[in-house]
Nucleic acid binder design. Structure first.
Length: 200
DNA sequence: CAAAACTGGAGCCGCTGTCC
DNA sequence: GGACAGCGGCTCCAGTTTTG
């Protein structure tokens, strides 16, 4: 899926722009909320930059959505809401910085509070999310399917092997690290407390 | 060391609201 | 209606940081 990347950048661009305007945030306002410069946000919204996972996570926090929902098609495009997401239709995105590959497994835009994401995490790589506090509570569970990863949440490091599952809340910095020489594969289940709140 | 990602400042342009 | 100010979006640029 190499040629899908520009398409996906376009999708992220539309999605970020749509979420920002729906929250009535200017570039400046989102820049202040997310900690990403407005120049960068402008580049992302025009699809002229390949943002890293760290930047996207900051933007997602500023927009009060889970990172995974930045890969959903824009609301206008959700004409047919299928409860099934076929493998070929599941969006894949690769972090240009670490090379980690994530796939949104869950069907896009279904009105449910949880999402499943599959991640292939390259050997020796490390991704540090700052994870700003959101107005809504976001919960995550990481279930390791293959290999070993270390997840540091609130300064506590958890070494997870195949079959292990870690539950955490997205309200502080977290670091994903694969200390081994083998790609790790894990599933993330993300759920948010989206009970209407999130207005601030 | 080079390239890419990223930041922050400055300037330009278009739109909108207000005042005379 | 025209002048003006304020705001938002975009672009350019110089500089820093990170990564391979």
């Amino acid at each position: 899926m190499k040629d899908a990347a520009p398409n996906l950048n376009q999708r992220i661009a539309e999605r970020v722009g749509q979420l920002r305007t729906s929250r009535e945030l200017s570039l400046d306002a989102l820049a202040r909320k997310s900690g990403v410069s407005r120049s960068m946000i402008s580049l992302v919204e025009r699809g002229e930059s390949s943002p890293t996972a760290v930047v996207l996570e900051k933007l997602a926090a500023g927009l009060n959505v889970p990172l995974a929902s930045l890969f959903d098609p824009p609301a206008a495009a959700k004409q047919v809401l299928s409860p099934v997401a076929r493998l070929k239709d599941q969006v894949e995105w690769q972090d240009p910085a670490s090379g980690y590959l994530r796939r949104n497994v869950s069907p896009a835009n279904v009105p449910q509070p949880m999402k499943i994401v599959e991640v292939h995490f390259p050997p020796r790589q490390r991704v540090a999310f700052e994870t700003n506090v959101r107005d809504v509570t976001v919960y995550e569970q990481v279930w390791v399917l293959e290999g070993t990863i270390e997840v540091t949440v609130n300064n506590e490091c958890h070494r997870l092997r195949a079959g292990d599952c870690l539950a955490m809340q997205l309200d502080g910095p977290k670091i994903f690290h694969n200390p081994t020489r083998k790609t790790a594969r894990y599933a993330i289940v993300v759920a948010s407390d989206s009970n209407g709140r999130g207005r601030r």
